[in-house]
Design a protein around this nucleic acid. Structure first.
Lengths: 229, 229
DNA sequence: CCTTGATTTCACGATTTTTTTATAAAAGTA
DNA sequence: TACTTTTATAAAAAAATCGTGAAATCAAGG
């Protein structure tokens, strides 16, 4: 799952009301949502949709959550998918059973949307700053620091807005490599955003204005690259 | 604790769900597990069970974790037992308080089993426990003192309410590092509190009002950071 | 129960960032 | 050179984000 890509959530519940509430809240938070109304459909949808998280009701017609969970865990592509059980209190399956079949977490109904949202986003939060990917790139006379969102150019500190910073960071991370505009959009803006490719030009220009002309070069007809040498 | 023998863990929490999750995961990792649902029972069980590690919820009916910890520390046979506090949010009892009563570590809920397991096994790897918690941060012209919840700014003493203090303390502890609102909420408010991300803004403003504008800077679209010179 | 202060929510406007649009300049091609 | 294509630049439009004041809620202490 790339940084910019929406996190995909599959909601599985036979209660249309609950599905709708969850779907609405998840979409509002920027998640991409798919739904299924029973276990059998859930497996089918999960295979196609490749969700990052599955919210799985335990009590369902046709095929219950536990059995569904087991089946999903068989699918190699969904090995790293988080499965969260939704369960009413005192339902017949104990929590232990839930974990036995490979659930990662479970939440008891009634569901409080705010709580659920924060629980899900916690799943994808960086564990700690320390074990984070390297945050500093030193290239030429620039030090590009993702931790503080600043550029240090031989002593001077330059601050860039988010998009400009990420553009420079991305190019600097892959020096001497040419990226087309679409490629840059996809990697920095994300795959589901619709902006014109010309937008990249404007950002490039702003970055050049701020750090100087000697770093990013244009390859006509192809794209841009961070220039070494 | 001997090499061959299973490491014994006592889990103390009033939430049966949490007890079950922990128990399940610990047993899977090969630990021997006992449980207790409140502080009083915990002391009793600990005496009999002689655990090597105690996972101790702070908030409990009857007798809270801090008091329980104190009592356990009185028992000579349990002098070498590791005690790990489980706490929902940082604020409940400051870390300092926890370490003061003899805790060896603490983790915030929600508990991520994998992280907990590695933390436990780490306890037995390193003998040197209790890495001392610093209680004072000196940064720029500020002295931020956790013990008294005050800031000293070149002679003047400023007192901040808890949340504002924690916020400043956290940022100052990680200077120059940008934290998103969610990240700050998670680290300062805790993971089981659901407040809007914009709440952070208001607290930031209050801190700025009180200590001045030259410390915390905004990175638009990203978050806040404590700014070094 | 009342008061006070802390915390959280809300709404609006100001500001900045991001995107679009239009035009000029540059580069490539025949 | 004339023509086409592509990029740079400037300026306008749109969108997002943040700061602020104020109200609402919550908590602690008297």
């Amino acid at each position: 799952m790339s940084e910019k890509q929406k996190i995909k959530v599959l909601v599985v519940d036979d209660e249309p009301d609950i599905v709708e509430i969850l779907k609405y809240n998840l979409q509002k938070e920027g998640y991409e949502v798919a739904t299924a109304e029973d276990g059998i459909k859930a497996v089918k949808t999960a295979t196609k949709f490749q969700p990052d998280v599955i919210l799985l009701d335990i009590m369902m017609p046709n095929q219950d959550g536990v059995e569904t969970c087991l089946q999903i865990r068989q699918i190699p592509e969904l090995k790293n998918t988080f499965i969260i059980f939704l369960t009413a209190r005192m339902e017949e399956y104990s929590e232990v059973a839930a974990f036995d079949v490979g659930a990662d977490d479970y939440i008891t109904k009634p569901i409080k949307p705010r709580a659920l949202m924060s629980r899900i986003s916690a799943l994808f939060r960086r564990e700690s700053k320390k074990e984070q990917e390297q945050t500093q790139i030193k290239i030429k006379d620039l030090t590009i620091d993702r931790g503080s969102y600043t550029i240090d150019k031989s002593g001077k500190t330059i601050t860039l807005p988010k998009k400009e910073f990420e553009l420079l960071y991305f190019l600097a991370k892959n020096p001497n490599m040419v990226f087309g505009r679409d490629e840059l959009l996809h990697n920095i803006w994300g795959s589901d955003v619709f902006v014109l490719a010309r937008t990249v030009d404007v950002h490039i220009r702003k970055v050049r204005e701020k750090i100087g002309e000697d770093y990013i070069s244009t390859v006509k007809g192809v794209g841009y690259k961070f220039d070494l040498g």
